[in-house]
Design a protein around this nucleic acid. Structure first.
Lengths: 244, 244
DNA sequence: TGTACGTTCGAACGTTCGTTCGATTTTTAT
DNA sequence: ATAAAAATCGAACGAACGTTCGAACGTACA
């Protein structure tokens, strides 16, 4: 069972093998991964058959299996590779950003850029979140937790610097929701590019957490409640210190 | 083909039939829908087999088919019923809310309450969004578009009243992202109840769009570098009480 | 040229899938 | 009580599933 499928670049490196054969193997595997990503994206993991993928790649069914072994491992390789690339790009990008706010904005921009550049892969990553079992599932879950932690730490830094007080968990998860849900609605004609969306979502995020000072708790925004006749100060139930 | 599966309450009403038989039919169908919802939630639509659902209901495979006809129609009935209930509850709730902001907050609260009360159904609704084909898919898509439009209109009202200027589409879709992504992370122990999440997400949403005045465009938030430690930290219970 | 190995594929394996059929049992109406 | 209708189920259908096998092919190095 599974006589081949070495998948050198992703799992283990052959003892002292000639790099030429390896490169070719990796290249072909990458091509299969691309086609499989598209098929998984369109039909879902369970809904896609290995024959669909074989047809898409132009290879034979059995020929493909030489490269990855099982369907589940195929999905694992796609998810691991995609997430790896995101994390790599993030590492580059985040170091060259200025303060805490800029680092969070860099995180958002990186996420959305990669998301829109690799929509198929990211839909597979988001949508087929819980199909991997046992070892594979655990490895991908670790990557995701790391990614979440990075964002949480950035937010914690920002909180300290700005002296804000809010629940990081809810804020970060809300941010991830905004960003990841995009695959259900993005339309380049209506929604612009990743930069614009990153700016908008960043604005919502920073605006949303801006009014929670450490000492005061959340406050009503102070600005321009238009001229409307002075109704009695509307306090929001449960919210401290809401005025005008 | 499909000799039975009348599904009276959902599709059409029998000519003058005695309501007794109908009630029983609907009741049994509802029970099947419940079990199917749970199985679809756990294994996904394509990953779940009709035999899984039969086992869950305790009925025989063929006996079940009497009630819904096909697997696809089973999913359709689940989605239509769930969405119908959300819309009904929303209609009640939204009328008894005060101004535009309160109506949007009511929308958010209604969504999250229903979401957390019926997590399985809502995951199926969110996750199996594009598996229905042709007629079924169109009908559910219409419901979703209506729902989206309602929210958009509420936001437009709010924009006018507050004299704000921002892109409703992006804001509303970001809001839906925050709310719908919840099924991937919600943990009642860490995240509190629907009311708290609705308050938090509402705050993020309103804070996020608050600084866009019609005349000025977005501007950097002007406010309040906090007067720190003017008073001992006053934290509302349930608000900002979990870390990372 | 020989040989060892990586690669490819047609064909098939056993299993599970959604669905249907015919018969039987249960409920309803007369 | 009896006929009609609804509900239920065991068994099976053909199709599609993921995977494997063994033979053929290509290529690299002795």
């Amino acid at each position: 069972m599974l006589t081949s499928a070495r998948s050198s670049q992703f799992e283990s490196r052959r003892a002292n093998g000639v790099a030429l054969g390896e490169a070719r193997f990796d290249q072909r595997l990458a091509k299969i991964l691309d086609h499989a990503t598209e098929v998984f994206c369109e039909k879902g993991y369970e809904g896609a058959s290995m024959r669909d993928i074989a047809r898409s790649t132009g290879m034979s069914l059995a020929g493909m299996y030489h490269y990855f072994g099982t369907k589940e491992r195929l999905l694992y390789l796609i998810q691991k590779l995609s997430f790896g690339k995101i994390l790599d790009r993030l590492a580059q990008r985040i170091t060259q950003a200025g303060g805490p706010e800029q680092r969070i904005r860099a995180f958002i921009a990186n996420h959305l850029e990669y998301f829109l550049e690799h929509q198929h892969a990211m839909k597979v990553l988001s949508h087929e979140d819980d199909v991997l079992t046992a070892g594979y599932g655990r490895k991908v879950a670790e990557l995701k937790r790391d990614y979440y932690r990075i964002c949480c730490n950035l937010v914690e830094d920002y909180k300290k610097e700005e002296n804000l007080d809010f629940d990081s968990r809810t804020a970060v998860l809300a941010l991830f929701g905004m960003m990841n849900w995009i695959y259900t609605w993005y339309n380049p004609r209506l929604d612009g590019d990743a930069g614009r969306l990153a700016r908008e979502m960043g604005n919502i995020f920073f605006g949303g957490i801006a009014n929670c000072t450490r000492a005061n708790g959340r406050r009503r925004r102070t600005n321009l409640r238009p001229h409307r006749m002075s109704s009695p100060a509307r306090r929001r139930p449960g919210d401290a210190l809401s005025f005008l």
